[in-house]
């Protein structure tokens, strides 16, 4: 069993008696996100391209029970992927197959639930679903030492995906108000809805917790 699956299974099977979280606590998190990226592009003739993603995210959460915390997260990111081969009409001539890169900016909004398993040291498991909008820049093709983009390759485009993500992490409560932590996450687009998108990220974050009154 893979480590991620093991952690998830352990979390789901953990009895409620040992579950600890922060009932009635709300929080606001700020995340720095980074990691490898895999994406597809219509121009690619050699499958998905790979690259890296970096971004910032903010998350708001509220815990209704000691074990469960519900949250929503907005992520803004920038990624770039390289493709081994793509077919372009460079300069309006005959089609050429050349390597190319695509940069993209994304805005993602998801909603999730986090299982929290500690008090001071807090292992976490988060599952989320959401939607993301990706603006793909014009592919940059390289041929004969020259770079072609814009009208020479393809115009930039805007696409949307439905995504799902899973994250495991470890938080540390520094005080009654401040928690910091790290997490490993994987996000993938729902197949058949928009272009393929897969990313693995490592996240560091700081969060302020408090008890709201409403």
């Amino acid at each position: 069993m893979k480590p991620l699956a093991l952690v998830a299974a352990t979390a789901l099977l953990a009895p409620a008696a040992i579950a600890h979280a922060d009932r009635r606590e709300a929080s606001v998190h700020v995340h720095a996100v980074g990691g490898p990226l895999s994406m597809e592009d219509d121009a690619s003739t050699a499958g998905a391209g790979t690259g890296a993603l970096a971004g910032l995210a903010v998350r708001a959460s509220y815990a209704t029970r000691n074990a469960w915390q519900y949250d929503t997260q907005l992520t803004l990111g920038y990624g770039r992927a390289s493709f081994d081969a793509g077919q372009f009409l460079l300069g309006g001539g005959t089609p050429m197959t050349v390597p190319f890169t695509v940069s993209s900016q994304l805005a993602r909004l998801d909603a999730g639930v986090t299982l929290r398993l500690g008090v001071r040291w807090i292992p976490t498991v988060r599952l989320a679903v959401g939607a993301q909008a990706v603006r793909r820049g014009s592919p940059v093709a390289t041929a004969g030492g020259f770079e072609f983009t814009g009208d020479d390759t393809a115009p930039s485009s805007l696409s949307a995906n439905l995504i799902g993500s899973a994250t495991v992490g470890l938080d540390y409560r520094m005080s009654r108000r401040l928690i910091v932590g790290v997490a490993l996450g994987a996000t993938a687009a729902v197949p058949g809805v928009g272009d393929s998108w897969r990313e693995a990220t490592i996240t560091v974050h700081a969060a302020r917790y408090w008890y709201p009154r409403w």
């Binding site: 009932r23 009635r24 008090v119 001071r120 409560r173 005080s175 009654r176 008890y211 009154r213």
Partner: peptide, 14 residues
Amino acid sequence: LNAIERNDDNVVVE
């Protein structure tokens, strides 16, 4: 009543 607070030692009073 719905007032709740905790201290740094994770003692929660409601």
